[in-house]
Amino acid sequence: METLKNIILSKTGIWLLLLVLAVVIPPMVGGYLTSMLILICIWTILCFSVNLIYGYTGQLSLGQAAFFGIGAYAFGLLTVKVGLGFWPAFFLAIVITGIFGFLIGIPALKLRGPYFILVTLGFSVIIGVVFVAWIELTGGANGLAGIPRPNPVPLPWGELSFESLLPMYYFILFFLIIIMLLFSRLVKSLIGKTFIAISYNENLTESLGINTMGRKIMSFTISAVIAGIAGVLYSSYNIVISPEIAYFAKGMDVVAYLIVGGAGTMAGPFIGTFILMALPEILQIVPSLNTLINGIILMLFLLFLPSGVSGGILSLKEKFSKKRIG
């Protein structure tokens, strides 16, 4: 009994409980809520990408929406215009996004602090403009349509098609879980520890024989790949994509999600995305007011709880355990 209680109350227990809820709830709620949950999963993946480069490596990038857009458009163009199948296009699209991350990272990461932030912001604005202006390629403001869903999977009792919402939700949830598991292994590995060390003190890390520039480029490239995966999933789910998805304000929104949830924690992307995406829905807020409300919430968090919800819970826990000992 005691061990069972321990498992339930442990971190793993909470994660397992959430997993069960994520699997069981969608079939019981309507299509609207399921589509909300799909979007929450996708933005959580994007939030993990910000978490790697900002939360764990300490380099605030406002440009992750651009990588999201590059992944989405690369996948869309490869399937619609080149005619590649789902999986080859998926793979190529995230490779392309990774190459963009690598090439942008080399000059941008030479800059520190606000200069790096400005370059990533500028990059995001440029990508957004390119998607609007390069009409022959991207379809401009009209967007790109006819992007395929994943291929149907033949199962013994019939074909599993991803045309309906529920299978698509599980498909995306599967990617979220895989990314989360690999992510947690990465940040606990020695390479991940050097990312964290850079966020703590870059000069000290360099003096300890770590090629900090190389590690920052590595982290930025991985974060671009994660953002690219989110973009591919989004374009496949939505079938149509338009330039707004790469709009720089989206990149800032995701940073807000992360800060509210808790940067540099595993739970941060989940908590932040859920709170800031679900809240406007629950309160039935006019969409145009969303940005304003996100801004106010972000400012309140930066002022009163800069470590975010999960950081706040951790420090509360510490306080209580100290009291018990003391």
Binding site: S189, L190, I191
Partner: peptide, 13 residues
């Protein structure tokens, strides 16, 4: 960490 030789993939997996 500078003595570590494991690559990205082997440390994640």
């Amino acid at each position: 960490a500078l003595h570590a030789k494991s690559g990205l993939c082997s440390s994640i997996i």
